[in-house]
């Protein structure tokens, strides 16, 4: 569990009006940026439920875009994000949907570019967020810890190979979650870590046979 802090109740310094609908939206955008890494050519934001219903009045639409463009929750750019130079450099549009199977404050980032990726996340309150799905894989990324994400061929021995590489560097694994889309096809691994991940580990993991995709996802700033 996350260590509780005095600053849970004082801060963040943020652009209003809502910690879940504005600050949470920015943080979801930032996470999507950290996961996708490249600059997308085009993004569709699909907002669900309360995000779809009251999002406009809370600047959720602006927050998501601002985050994806790399602005933090206290950036004065958020309010006028549509006029910013950065926003003009990508294509974006919004869709609004109701879906009772989704969290009340849910969003999909449908990113197109050199690679296509769909990232789904929820704003779970007080500015906290979780990334729950990347393409077909369930994930559990809160942005509170550095996270290693990988997609690989579903076969025995992968988890131990990866965790050995991490342990060799003396890095503590806080949590590890796996998911797969069908037996023997592709699987995903989400590893939350207590410290920063050196680039050489990422390379070593990338070099394991049948690892398709590795991402070193930086934690969000408090």
């Amino acid at each position: 569990m996350k260590q509780r802090s005095l600053f849970d109740v004082i801060s963040p310094i943020m652009i209003g009006p809502s910690s879940s609908h504005t600050a949470g939206a920015v943080r979801l955008g930032l996470m999507a940026k950290n996961i996708y890494k490249e600059k997308p050519k085009k993004v569709t934001f699909r907002l669900y439920n309360s995000f779809a219903q009251t999002g406009k009045g809370h600047g959720t639409d602006k927050g998501l875009l601002a985050g994806l463009l790399g602005f933090n929750v206290d950036s004065e750019e958020i309010k006028n994000i549509y006029n910013s130079e950065k926003a003009k450099s990508i294509k974006y549009n919004y869709e609004f949907e109701q879906n009772i199977d989704k969290h009340p404050n849910a969003v999909d980032f449908i990113l197109e570019g050199d690679i296509n990726m769909t990232i789904s996340g929820n704003s779970v309150g007080a500015g906290n967020i979780e990334i729950v799905k990347i393409d077909d894989f369930a994930t559990k990324i809160s942005g509170e810890l550095n996270t290693l994400l990988l997609f690989y061929k579903d076969k025995p021995g992968m988890i131990s190979q990866v965790s050995t590489l991490i342990q060799n560097e003396n890095i503590n694994i806080a949590s590890l979650e796996c998911d797969r889309n069908a037996r023997g096809k592709t699987a995903s691994m989400c590893i939350c870590l207590d410290s920063k991940i050196p680039e050489n580990i990422i390379e070593n993991i990338q070099n394991i046979e049948d690892v398709y995709f590795v991402r070193n996802i930086k934690k969000l700033e408090a």
Partner: peptide, 9 residues
């Protein structure tokens, strides 16, 4: 107004 404040709480 979507200006800067401090959430408290």
């Amino acid at each position: 107004r979507m200006n800067k404040i401090v959430a408290c709480p």
